[in-house]
Amino acid sequence: MLFQIALVSFAAFAIFKTWKQFSARKISKYWFIVAVLFWVVVAVVAIVPEATNIVADYVGVGRGADLVVYTGLVSLFYIAHRLMLRQHQLSDEMTELVRQIAIEKAHMSSLPEQTNTAD
């Protein structure tokens, strides 16, 4: 019972935060609906775990709880992969930035100094 209360409370908190962000126009209506739907599903699954059995039966996994674990694992691997790619991209961008600064500085210092010709 404690688990259900904790998860439903967390989902309610997440929906409240999403609504605050939506009210402050920080997220789009589309993203607001997607996020609310996600947390509603989380709350429903917490209250009625058997509900996942319907989907599990449909996709051919034995138990609903197993389906949740499998889906969670795959999602986490995907997120880790995306984060790794993003980290590589940032690292490449950082190298390019450092490179351009080095080249520009060396080039500028190789130019003859401009003399001030103002009267």
């Binding site: 950082m94 190298t95 450092v98 490179r99 600064i101 080095a102 080249i103 060396a106 080039h107 190789s110």
Partner: peptide
């Protein structure tokens, strides 16, 4: 001719920086 990376980026990155400078 000396170039300086303001953040350490590694030997491969330094080689490419030097090559870019030389080619340009």
């Amino acid at each position: 001719i000396v170039l300086r990376h303001v953040v350490n980026r590694g030997q491969g990155a330094a080689l490419q920086t030097a090559t870019d400078y030389a080619l340009r």
